[in-house]
Design a protein around this nucleic acid. Structure first.
Ligand code: MN
Ligand code: MN
Ligand code: ZN
Ligand code: ZN
Lengths: 144, 144
DNA sequence: GTGATTGTTGCAAAAATTGGCAATAAGAGG
DNA sequence: CCTCTTATTGCCAATTTTTGCAACAATCAC
């Protein structure tokens, strides 16, 4: 509860939702883990703190947080969905089709695309957390 | 089997997979539906043609097709995953956060981004089927 | 603080998705 | 056409995710 970068409780209340210990603990878990965290990992961690918390509560909380924009989700393609506290400045990822390596990129990198789409379609792209597939520099060049 | 734009059977065989009536029927269903089609819709359709086909077969076939690039998948955010025959020229979608409307855009629209990322990171973006969130023209301007 | 209101939780059941496995059948070779 | 190999299927069970609902508790008004 000390490491929040935003007023999560205020956002929840402003949207008509209640601040419960379960939700706080889930946000705490996400903050502590830092990077991409699976639901299973969050649940496992909560088990130690409070074994009465139910898995369905975690499912529901994560879904709510994503809807409210407090959390972003990611689907690597490896079947598991990951969650992460939404930063003030969004970021995205490059995922190599060959080696699977992931690389984080800044939101700026997609601004050109957003502008081009706005010009052409009048649509204001405002994407949270893209996973862009492709071939990384290492895999593109044959290792000689 | 007549409306295929690509030699699906050849691609399957070349990759060491077999061409089975189940896989053919699933591809047929995707071709006929045309747009984004859910697994449930495909399964329902197959039921009428051949009630012995199992749902797990559909799951496995769709996963395989996506891996081979014959089919692209999409996650609107509404919880259901959609599938669609991969076209020769990829396309993407703009999804309005407000009204939920979807708009198709051409692959060209993201080429600028791909180039920028290549310049900056050496990563060759080669994305199939993006779902870009944002605000559509209709929702951005107050309806007067 | 007390009580009323109503969003939230844990539980259990339902539904969706995945995985193991023996029977089947596609594809290759003769 | 027949035989062999082995990928694939349907079936079933395991696992994961969603949903309905009564008990609970966060919030608000007083
Ligand atoms: Mn991320
Ligand atoms: Mn599409
Ligand atoms: Zn790579
Ligand atoms: Zn809209």
């Amino acid at each position: 509860m000390s490491h929040y970068t935003r007023d999560f409780e205020g956002i929840l209340r402003a949207a008509g939702y209640r601040v419960t210990p379960q939700r706080i603990q889930i946000l705490d878990a996400l903050c502590d883990e830092g990077g991409h965290t699976s639901l299973a990992a969050i649940y496992l961690r909560l088990q130690r703190i409070d074994p009465t918390i139910d898995k369905s509560t975690v499912y529901r909380a994560l879904k709510l947080f994503v809807t409210l924009g407090l959390v972003v989700s990611a689907d690597n393609g490896d079947g598991e969905v990951y969650y992460e506290i939404a930063r003030v400045q969004p970021h995205h990822h490059l995922v190599c089709r060959q080696c699977g390596q992931q690389q984080e990129i800044d939101h700026d990198a997609i601004q050109l695309m957003a502008e081009a789409i706005y010009q052409q379609y009048g649509f204001q792209v405002n994407t949270d957390h893209l996973m862009l597939n492709g071939i990384c520099a290492g895999c593109r060049l044959p290792h000689q």
